[in-house]
Amino acid sequence: MYDFNYHRPASATDAAAARKAAADGVYLAGGMTLLPTLKQRLARNSDVVDLAAAGLAGIGRDGGTITIGAMSTHDSVATSSEVQSAIPALAALAGGIGDPQVRNRGTIGGSIANADPAADYPAAVLGLNATVHTDRRDIKAGDFFTGMFETALDDGELITKVTFPVPAAAAYAKFANLASRYAIVGVMAAKTGDGIRVAVTGAAGNAFRATAMEQALAGDFSAAALDGISVDADYNSDIHASAEYRRHLVGVMAKRAVGEIA
């Protein structure tokens, strides 16, 4: 790691101020991606602003909404009784991220800000029609993920919490890369107040909604309704999975997620 200044502000406001004051600052949430990146000298930042003490952790339910503080760990989401009862698919998704040690440190805010194309949370944010709250504004899920490792966040903008409307039903099915354990394809299917949503992660540059599937499911919410639907996307291709194989897996995982609900 290159040298940097370390800050541990006691509030989100102080964090934003520290970040703003830095020449080339970066927020440190769980650090599960940032620290390996710094360690391998793939990034060089003048300042690292640790959000651990900024008061951004915590999970609560308010009527039909689950609110998850940005610094809530995957483990806290997975084991939260409120999440488990309101959106079991979200708890299960969080419980399947990385490995136990990643889940003990990694956070929802860090994950979605990083917007790894193979991360699990983007499927949940998009599939459950969540809202990403920052220190500046609220961003609808559909507007948040803009590209590979790219989001709608402006420089220095800080995610404070994510709110999930409680769906009528939802399920997440993931086909993991056996080496990295990230998603080769992950599909969140949900019956929400906003209609049927099917969100795909891992398959392309960023998470996206499979609208053809959503339309088919709106008429007949069953795995069989997805027969023959091939989702068009700009599929990733690598040594683990070709674009063709990913396209196929989107169909398989979508059916599994839907089958779990239907």
Partner: peptide, 12 residues
């Protein structure tokens, strides 16, 4: 809680 000490700063 178990954590990977190679992926955590001493200051954390």
């Amino acid at each position: 809680k178990s954590v990977k000490s190679c992926t955590m700063l001493a200051h954390q």
